[in-house]
Protein backbone atom coordinates (compact mmCIF):
# COMPACT_ATOMS: atom_id res chain seq x y z
CA UNK A 1 0.00 0.00 0.00
CA UNK A 2 1.17 3.51 -0.86
CA UNK A 3 2.39 5.64 2.03
CA UNK A 4 0.30 8.81 2.18
CA UNK A 5 1.70 10.44 5.28
CA UNK A 6 5.05 10.20 6.97
CA UNK A 7 6.42 12.19 9.88
CA UNK A 8 10.08 12.10 10.88
CA UNK A 9 10.91 13.00 14.47
CA UNK A 10 8.44 15.86 14.51
CA UNK A 11 8.75 18.17 17.49
CA UNK A 12 6.79 21.26 18.44
CA UNK A 13 8.24 23.34 21.23
CA UNK A 14 6.92 26.42 23.01
CA UNK A 15 8.95 28.65 25.26
CA UNK A 16 7.03 30.20 28.14
CA UNK A 17 8.88 32.24 30.79
CA UNK A 18 12.21 30.86 29.58
CA UNK A 19 10.93 27.30 30.00
CA UNK A 20 10.74 25.20 26.84
CA UNK A 21 7.82 22.83 26.61
CA UNK A 22 7.64 20.14 23.95
CA UNK A 23 3.95 19.85 23.08
CA UNK A 24 4.93 17.17 20.55
CA UNK A 25 8.24 15.43 20.97
CA UNK A 26 10.06 13.39 18.31
CA UNK A 27 6.98 11.79 16.81
CA UNK A 28 7.50 9.57 13.80
CA UNK A 29 4.64 7.75 12.15
CA UNK A 30 3.53 6.45 8.80
CA UNK A 31 0.03 6.07 7.41
CA UNK A 32 -0.82 4.24 4.23
CA UNK A 33 -3.68 4.59 1.79
CA UNK A 34 -6.87 2.96 3.08
CA UNK A 35 -5.73 3.18 6.72
CA UNK A 36 -7.90 4.84 9.34
CA UNK A 37 -5.92 5.83 12.43
CA UNK A 38 -7.07 7.18 15.79
CA UNK A 39 -4.81 9.41 17.87
CA UNK A 40 -5.90 9.12 21.48
CA UNK A 41 -4.59 10.44 24.73
CA UNK A 42 -5.50 12.61 27.69
CA UNK A 43 -5.82 16.39 27.54
CA UNK A 44 -2.43 18.03 26.95
CA UNK A 45 -0.93 14.89 25.43
CA UNK A 46 -0.25 16.78 22.19
CA UNK A 47 -2.77 15.10 19.90
CA UNK A 48 -4.45 18.30 18.63
CA UNK A 49 -1.06 20.00 18.14
CA UNK A 50 0.00 16.93 16.15
CA UNK A 51 -3.14 17.17 14.03
CA UNK A 52 -2.52 20.89 13.43
CA UNK A 53 0.98 20.10 12.16
CA UNK A 54 -0.28 17.26 9.96
CA UNK A 55 -2.79 19.73 8.47
CA UNK A 56 -0.07 22.28 7.71
CA UNK A 57 -1.66 24.77 10.09
CA UNK A 58 1.33 24.76 12.41
CA UNK A 59 5.00 24.40 11.56
CA UNK A 60 7.06 21.85 13.46
CA UNK A 61 10.02 23.18 15.42
CA UNK A 62 12.05 20.20 14.24
CA UNK A 63 11.46 17.24 11.96
CA UNK A 64 9.44 17.08 8.79
CA UNK A 65 6.04 16.00 7.53
CA UNK A 66 5.57 14.53 4.09
CA UNK A 67 2.11 14.09 2.58
CA UNK A 68 1.69 12.44 -0.81
CA UNK A 69 5.41 12.90 -1.41
CA UNK A 70 5.37 16.65 -0.64
CA UNK A 71 7.32 18.09 2.29
CA UNK A 72 5.07 20.62 4.02
CA UNK A 73 8.05 22.57 5.37
CA UNK A 74 9.17 23.41 1.82
CA UNK A 75 5.92 25.20 1.01
CA UNK A 76 5.16 28.87 1.45
CA UNK A 77 1.86 30.02 2.92
CA UNK A 78 -0.05 30.41 -0.35
CA UNK A 79 1.07 27.02 -1.66
CA UNK A 80 0.26 25.42 1.64
CA UNK A 81 -3.26 26.86 1.45
CA UNK A 82 -3.66 25.42 -2.05
CA UNK A 83 -2.22 22.11 -0.87
CA UNK A 84 -4.72 21.94 2.00
CA UNK A 85 -7.71 22.56 -0.21
CA UNK A 86 -6.59 20.01 -2.79
CA UNK A 87 -5.05 17.21 -0.75
CA UNK A 88 -6.63 17.37 2.69
CA UNK A 89 -10.18 16.93 3.93
CA UNK A 90 -11.17 18.32 7.33
CA UNK A 91 -13.81 17.86 9.94
CA UNK A 92 -13.64 19.88 13.14
CA UNK A 93 -15.08 19.57 16.58
CA UNK A 94 -17.16 22.77 16.24
CA UNK A 95 -17.88 25.53 13.72
CA UNK A 96 -17.64 22.93 11.01
CA UNK A 97 -20.02 24.44 8.50
CA UNK A 98 -20.68 27.82 6.94
CA UNK A 99 -23.95 28.85 8.60
CA UNK A 100 -25.39 30.78 5.66
CA UNK A 101 -24.94 27.93 3.18
CA UNK A 102 -27.23 24.92 2.80
CA UNK A 103 -25.96 21.38 3.46
CA UNK A 104 -25.43 20.87 -0.26
CA UNK A 105 -23.65 24.20 -0.71
CA UNK A 106 -21.35 23.45 2.23
CA UNK A 107 -20.27 20.27 0.50
CA UNK A 108 -19.97 21.97 -2.87
CA UNK A 109 -17.78 24.64 -1.28
CA UNK A 110 -14.72 22.38 -1.55
CA UNK A 111 -15.38 21.91 -5.26
CA UNK A 112 -15.79 25.66 -5.73
CA UNK A 113 -12.55 26.31 -3.82
CA UNK A 114 -10.76 23.90 -6.13
CA UNK A 115 -12.36 25.36 -9.28
CA UNK A 116 -14.03 22.01 -9.96
CA UNK A 117 -17.66 22.87 -9.40
CA UNK A 118 -19.95 21.90 -12.23
CA UNK A 119 -23.21 20.00 -12.65
CA UNK A 120 -21.44 16.64 -12.34
CA UNK A 121 -19.85 17.88 -9.11
CA UNK A 122 -23.23 18.95 -7.81
CA UNK A 123 -24.62 15.49 -8.56
CA UNK A 124 -21.67 13.87 -6.78
CA UNK A 125 -22.28 16.05 -3.74
CA UNK A 126 -25.96 15.10 -3.73
CA UNK A 127 -25.09 11.40 -4.03
CA UNK A 128 -22.57 11.62 -1.20
CA UNK A 129 -25.05 13.36 1.10
CA UNK A 130 -27.68 10.78 0.17
CA UNK A 131 -25.19 8.04 1.01
CA UNK A 132 -24.77 9.69 4.42
CA UNK A 133 -28.55 9.69 4.94
CA UNK A 134 -29.04 13.37 4.20
CA UNK A 135 -30.76 13.12 0.82
CA UNK A 136 -33.79 14.92 2.20
CA UNK A 137 -31.76 17.64 3.90
CA UNK A 138 -29.86 19.08 0.94
CA UNK A 139 -31.38 22.55 1.18
CA UNK A 140 -31.39 22.77 4.95
CA UNK A 141 -29.21 25.38 6.63
CA UNK A 142 -26.80 24.41 9.39
CA UNK A 143 -29.19 25.69 12.03
CA UNK A 144 -31.84 23.30 10.74
CA UNK A 145 -29.63 20.22 11.17
CA UNK A 146 -28.89 18.20 14.28
CA UNK A 147 -25.31 17.84 15.58
CA UNK A 148 -24.99 14.40 13.97
CA UNK A 149 -26.34 15.65 10.66
CA UNK A 150 -23.91 18.57 10.73
CA UNK A 151 -21.01 16.17 11.33
CA UNK A 152 -22.15 14.04 8.40
CA UNK A 153 -22.30 17.13 6.16
CA UNK A 154 -18.75 17.94 7.32
CA UNK A 155 -17.67 14.40 6.44
CA UNK A 156 -19.17 14.77 2.97
CA UNK A 157 -17.35 18.09 2.57
CA UNK A 158 -14.08 16.46 3.69
CA UNK A 159 -14.39 13.75 1.05
CA UNK A 160 -16.05 15.41 -1.97
CA UNK A 161 -12.85 16.70 -3.60
CA UNK A 162 -11.04 13.33 -3.43
CA UNK A 163 -8.31 14.36 -1.00
CA UNK A 164 -5.34 12.14 -0.17
CA UNK A 165 -5.87 12.39 3.55
CA UNK A 166 -8.78 13.22 5.83
CA UNK A 167 -8.23 14.74 9.26
CA UNK A 168 -10.95 14.73 11.91
CA UNK A 169 -10.68 16.60 15.19
CA UNK A 170 -12.95 15.11 17.86
CA UNK A 171 -15.75 14.43 15.37
CA UNK A 172 -17.98 12.88 18.02
CA UNK A 173 -17.49 15.39 20.83
CA UNK A 174 -20.97 16.84 20.64
CA UNK A 175 -22.84 13.65 19.74
CA UNK A 176 -24.66 11.03 21.78
CA UNK A 177 -23.24 7.51 21.71
CA UNK A 178 -25.55 6.16 19.03
CA UNK A 179 -24.95 9.11 16.71
CA UNK A 180 -21.22 8.97 17.43
CA UNK A 181 -21.00 5.31 16.37
CA UNK A 182 -23.06 6.08 13.27
CA UNK A 183 -20.86 9.04 12.24
CA UNK A 184 -17.51 7.34 12.81
CA UNK A 185 -18.71 4.11 11.25
CA UNK A 186 -19.77 5.93 8.11
CA UNK A 187 -16.55 7.92 8.09
CA UNK A 188 -14.42 4.78 8.37
CA UNK A 189 -16.39 3.06 5.62
CA UNK A 190 -15.91 5.93 3.20
CA UNK A 191 -12.19 6.30 3.95
CA UNK A 192 -11.60 2.63 3.34
CA UNK A 193 -13.81 2.44 0.25
CA UNK A 194 -12.11 5.47 -1.33
CA UNK A 195 -8.65 4.22 -0.33
CA UNK A 196 -7.76 7.41 1.55
CA UNK A 197 -5.70 7.88 4.66
CA UNK A 198 -7.74 9.00 7.67
CA UNK A 199 -6.65 10.36 11.03
CA UNK A 200 -9.08 10.98 13.84
CA UNK A 201 -8.16 12.69 17.07
CA UNK A 202 -10.51 11.52 19.80
CA UNK A 203 -10.69 11.18 23.54
CA UNK A 204 -13.51 8.64 23.22
CA UNK A 205 -11.91 5.19 23.17
CA UNK A 206 -15.20 3.56 22.15
CA UNK A 207 -14.76 5.08 18.70
CA UNK A 208 -11.51 3.20 18.11
CA UNK A 209 -13.46 0.08 17.19
CA UNK A 210 -13.66 1.42 13.62
CA UNK A 211 -9.96 2.19 13.14
CA UNK A 212 -7.07 0.14 11.86
CA UNK A 213 -4.50 1.60 14.21
CA UNK A 214 -4.59 3.41 17.57
CA UNK A 215 -1.78 5.81 18.37
CA UNK A 216 -1.73 6.59 22.05
CA UNK A 217 0.04 9.83 22.94
CA UNK A 218 1.26 10.94 26.33
CA UNK A 219 3.31 14.02 27.18
CA UNK A 220 3.84 14.80 23.51
CA UNK A 221 5.22 11.39 22.64
CA UNK A 222 3.82 8.21 21.17
CA UNK A 223 3.24 5.95 24.12
CA UNK A 224 1.89 2.98 22.23
CA UNK A 225 0.71 2.00 18.75
CA UNK A 226 -1.94 -0.69 18.63
CA UNK A 227 -2.72 -2.43 15.37
CA UNK A 228 -6.37 -3.28 15.98
CA UNK A 229 -6.58 -5.94 13.26
CA UNK A 230 -3.50 -7.67 14.62
CA UNK A 231 -4.86 -7.39 18.14
CA UNK A 232 -8.11 -9.09 17.11
CA UNK A 233 -6.14 -11.85 15.38
CA UNK A 234 -3.94 -12.25 18.46
CA UNK A 235 -7.02 -12.37 20.66
CA UNK A 236 -8.63 -14.98 18.40
CA UNK A 237 -5.43 -17.06 18.43
CA UNK A 238 -5.27 -16.86 22.20
CA UNK A 239 -8.90 -18.08 22.50
CA UNK A 240 -8.21 -20.96 20.15
Amino acid sequence: MKTILQTNAVTKSYTVDNVTINAVNEVSLEIKAGEFVAIVGPSGSGKTTMLAMLAGLLSPTRGNIVIDGQDLAAMKEARLTRFRRQKIGFTFQANNLVPYLSALENVELMLRLNGRFDRAGRQRAKDLLAQLGLGERLKNLTSQLSGGQQQRVAIARALIHNPQIVLADEPTASLDTERAYQVVGTFAGLIQSQNLAGIMVTHDLRMTRYVDKIIQMRDGQINKIIDTRQAILDFADARN
Binding site: T81, R85, N95, N96, P99, L113
Partner: peptide, 13 residues
Protein backbone atom coordinates in the same frame (compact mmCIF):
# COMPACT_ATOMS: atom_id res chain seq x y z
CA UNK B 1 -13.73 34.67 13.60
CA UNK B 2 -14.18 30.92 14.16
CA UNK B 3 -16.01 30.54 10.84
CA UNK B 4 -13.28 32.44 8.99
CA UNK B 5 -10.65 30.27 10.70
CA UNK B 6 -12.47 27.19 9.43
CA UNK B 7 -12.70 28.62 5.90
CA UNK B 8 -8.97 29.31 5.91
CA UNK B 9 -8.20 25.86 7.32
CA UNK B 10 -10.05 24.14 4.47
CA UNK B 11 -8.10 26.19 1.94
CA UNK B 12 -9.77 29.57 1.41
CA UNK B 13 -7.10 32.18 0.76
Amino acid sequence: VAQVGMLKAIGTS
